[in-house]
Design a protein around this nucleic acid. Structure first.
Lengths: 326, 326
DNA sequence: AGCTATATTGGAACCGGTTCTATTTCAGTG
DNA sequence: CACTGAAATAGAACCGGTTCCAATATAGCT
């Protein structure tokens, strides 16, 4: 690999001159031309490591995600990627595989890589997370979950739950079945559900049965098969779109038709699911936009500007084909 | 940030001793204990950059992907991630956003980052790609597409096409409609289609109409709406599962039922789509496994071992609910 | 031409590690 | 107790850049 020394030698100048040529450019036209030529001829690329060593800045952002094969994560990543590219950051994406131990490991690993900052998509923030983040002394932003002490950007999950509830009440439904996930996941497991309940409870004569299931579709499907066997509800909510899809599959196999027999709604708003039949009524979360916001906010943290401790982004209800009047 | 010098000074030894302590460990028990203590107390972590600078090795693998929001890409990434983690590599994932210029940029960017090797998921390999890869002089592996000169791992797309054809012929279908994608994408646009045709042509009295559409579901849906209006075929194939899904949506809106009026098949085998109703008959590609293979192969390239120029991985037909006898 | 202000340049130090060589320490041996 | 060989350690050089400072070249002005 050709180094700055080779270039300097061949051009007959000091390496500091070449360095200046590469950066601020206070170099005479003549030398510039000469170096230009040699750099091109030899295909010289500065070594990022040597650079980072001195600069104490790598222009890299670390992203920790819980899993790779989730539509929402991928939308967020797309947004992060687009904005990072725009601002000149490289991304190091690590997949913690839903394992808290790996999340902690990854925080330290990214710190060793000397990333300029970390975006952390977590399902929950524990004391250990908080400690690791404190230890590494690096700008760190949490996405999707609220966390005290650490700046975070979250969806309005509570409001989303309320929107679905209001929609269902407008359609005059009274009996509800709600497939939720572990309350460990505060945003998806608690906030969405609480928002829903809060609104439903305002109406008299309503009843909600809730069942905990999993993000894994096969498991959600099994739960649904059991639940739907003697069903009282006329309106079913899934904590995510994929759960709702699994429930719809179960319903179809048990001979229940959507939306004639039961209405269904989910959370997510993935494009893919607008193509299933019937198309799912759902909350559309601005995943891509939240990814972009995250990078913007993180950059401000890196530049030591003031940032909001807590940003909430709104979402919207998209009524499609799975909900109807009772 | 505490450095090796701080540790050395505090322990009253030379920094070379601390370095030895960190690596091969030829250090007396007494000094070891002393350094141990100080390292722990100060929370010292060696600087990866300084290390890489000397070592000329970063333990990082660069991955270039065409887009983040594709189910197959994400499965592949999961496999890559798992194996990379196992072998002690960090991943730098860059999203080229289906833009050839960005792919080339990313190749050079990753080289500058001094990754140890690159895994490249491309839709097609042009001369420019080949040149960039040659220039950077780094181990580089192409996934999903064949490329001369560069080691590659590909799916048996041709065989997949044949499997669907055989299945369709067994069900006694004669008239086919095939939604393909641009032939620029050799694996998806050409091989799958050619394999299909090859097998269909062996049967007399068959006819295939093929239409080019896009990976974008909305566009595939539009194409399908136009095509299905006066449909002769009884069996429709999508070059990907998502295309097939878009076609099914169009069919449903035009009052055609699957599989009673038409049979449908796709390529992909995504879990998600086994939950739509009716569940799609499809070729299941071992995306996760191919990701793992890629890392294994790349590591061998990094270690300068001999690797196969060209590996083909088999796939299987999963018959579900969208295909039936005519 | 002579002087000053400014632009350009070279040299050295530095970032935080690793590694080579030379030196010191120390235990074991006759 | 002197001698030998091995183990432990210190010191210096190096990886490939950036940056500071001093030295030199150039331009502009009287």
């Amino acid at each position: 690999m050709v180094s700055i020394n080779d270039i300097a030698k061949e051009a007959g100048v000091a390496k500091s001159t070449v360095s200046r040529y590469l950066n601020n450019g206070s170099v005479s036209l003549k030398t510039k031309a000469k170096i230009d030529e040699i750099v091109k001829k030899r295909g010289y690329k500065p070594n990022t490591f040597a650079r980072s060593l001195k600069a104490q800045k790598t222009n890299m952002i670390g992203v920790i995600i819980p899993r790779l094969n989730s539509p929402s994560t991928n939308e967020v990543l797309s947004g992060i990627d687009a904005k990072a590219h725009e601002l000149g950051y490289q991304l190091i994406i690590t997949n913690a595989n839903q394992d808290e131990k790996r999340e902690i490991e990854d925080i330290y690993a990214l710190a060793k890589q000397k990333v300029d900052g970390i975006i952390f998509l977590a399902k929950s923030i524990t004391a250990e997370h908080r400690e690791a983040i404190k230890n590494i002394e690096l700008p760190c932003l949490v996405l999707g979950q609220y966390s005290k002490d650490i700046p975070s950007i979250v969806h309005d999950d509570h409001g989303a739950g309320r929107k679905i509830a209001k929609h269902a009440l407008t359609l005059r439904h009274k009996y509800f079945l709600y497939f939720t996930v572990s309350s460990e996941d505060k945003a998806v497991g608690q906030d969405r559900y609480n928002g829903f309940i809060e609104e439903i409870d305002k109406e008299e004569g309503t009843r909600v049965r809730s069942v905990e299931t999993s993000f894994i579709m096969q498991e959600a499907y099994q739960t649904a098969i059991n639940e739907l066997k003697n069903l009282k509800a006329t309106f079913i909510v899934g904590a995510t779109d994929t759960i709702a899809l699994a429930v719809m599959k179960a319903a179809s196999e048990l001979g229940l038709s959507v939306p004639e027999d039961i209405s269904m709604a989910g959370h997510g708003g993935y494009d893919l699911l607008s193509f299933v039949t019937p198309a799912l009524t759902s909350i559309k979360y601005p995943y891509y936009a939240i990814g972009e916001m995250a990078v913007d906010t993180l950059e401000n943290m890196i530049l030591k500007k003031e940032v909001a401790q807590y940003q909430v982004v709104p979402n919207e209800l998209v009524v499609r084909e799975t909900t109807q009047n009772i």
